[in-house]
Amino acid sequence: MRAFVVRPLKRTLFVIGATLLVASANARADELIVSAAASLINAFKAIGDAYEQQHPGTKVLLNFGASDVLMQQIVKGAPADVFASADQKAMDKAVAEKVVDPATRRDFATNALVLIVPADSRFAPATLNDLTSADVKRIAFGDPASVPIGRYAQGALQAAGVWDAVNAKSVLASNVRQSLDYVSRGEVDAGFVFATDAAIMPDRVKVALTVPTQTAVSYPIALVEGSRHANDAKAFIAYVLSPDGQAVLAKYGFKPAAGAH
């Protein structure tokens, strides 16, 4: 199994866009291409390995990035068989663009929005309002225009009445893992990520707040229209929804979605 993911520039703070590595258009007949949200990297690598063991004739290629960027790649003709996004809005866009089969759309996991700070930070916010303090200079979150974590964060900050003040300090990330990296390296004072992302760096970051969201943090998955491997793609989706797939997701901190097996 191969995975494709872009690494953030080590010292770049301000990000206005992302160019993601796309799976090769020359994928072999036995290669299943899964485009999945960046927050799914660890879980889907494990799911891909498990799926390959149960389906020895299939190779799973994983393409990770911001959900909206992946959707646009598919719209522009990038090869993909399965699309898994980190929010409903990205999948809604894919449906509107007619690049996924809506009949195959299923929610397969849920997550939580958290505010994290560097592990050695003395900053201990009790509420989102504490982010407006003059002592807080930089706050990382995904670009709301293209990154689900950014949309969830924006909604929470707007509900708390501090969006304008916090947005003025924003360091926009091209995906949730870049936001995590900024905090882990101490390049920002705080950042918004999913709970599952924070859990992979317990020695580098700490969760300051679990943040209520305006909409549930849920992950949908669907078959890409025109897939050359539709049967394998449907089988992969079924595996993600199966007890075995759900157990892998649970291992990486994801919660089950209503309707998942």
Rank of each mutant, 00 (worst) to 15 (best):
M1S: 11
R2C: 14
R2F: 12
V5Q: 04
V5T: 09
P8H: 06
V15C: 03
I16L: 14
G17D: 08
T19F: 12
L20M: 05
A23Q: 13
N26Y: 15
A29R: 15
L32M: 08
I33H: 00
V34D: 04
A36C: 14
A36R: 00
S39F: 01
L40I: 08
F44R: 01
A46P: 06
A50H: 07
E52G: 15
K59P: 08
L61H: 03
L61S: 02
L62E: 06
N63H: 10
A66D: 00
A66R: 00
D68C: 07
L70Y: 05
M71S: 06
M71A: 11
Q72T: 09
K76T: 15
K76G: 13
G77R: 11
D81K: 02
V82Y: 03
S85F: 02
S85T: 06
A86V: 00
D87M: 04
K93Q: 02
K93A: 02
K93V: 03
K98Q: 13
V99F: 13
V100R: 01
P102E: 10
A109L: 14
N111Q: 11
A112I: 08
L115S: 09
I116V: 13
I116W: 05
A119C: 06
D120W: 07
S121L: 08
F123D: 04
A124F: 15
P125K: 08
P125G: 10
L131F: 12
L131P: 09
T132P: 07
T132A: 11
A134C: 12
A140V: 15
A145D: 01
P148C: 09
G150I: 10
G150R: 02
Y152A: 03
A153M: 10
L157S: 06
A159H: 01
G161Q: 02
W163D: 09
D164R: 11
D164H: 14
K169N: 09
K169I: 14
V171N: 05
A173I: 10
S174N: 00
R177P: 01
L180M: 07
V183Y: 06
R185H: 12
R185S: 11
R185L: 13
V188L: 07
D189W: 12
T196G: 09
A199V: 10
I200Q: 04
V205F: 12
L209M: 07
L209S: 04
Q214C: 10
L223T: 04
V224I: 10
S227M: 11
R228W: 14
N231F: 03
I237N: 01
A238Q: 01
A238C: 03
V240R: 02
S242M: 07
S242N: 05
G245E: 10
Q246M: 15
L249I: 09
F254P: 09
A258E: 05
H261I: 11
H261L: 11
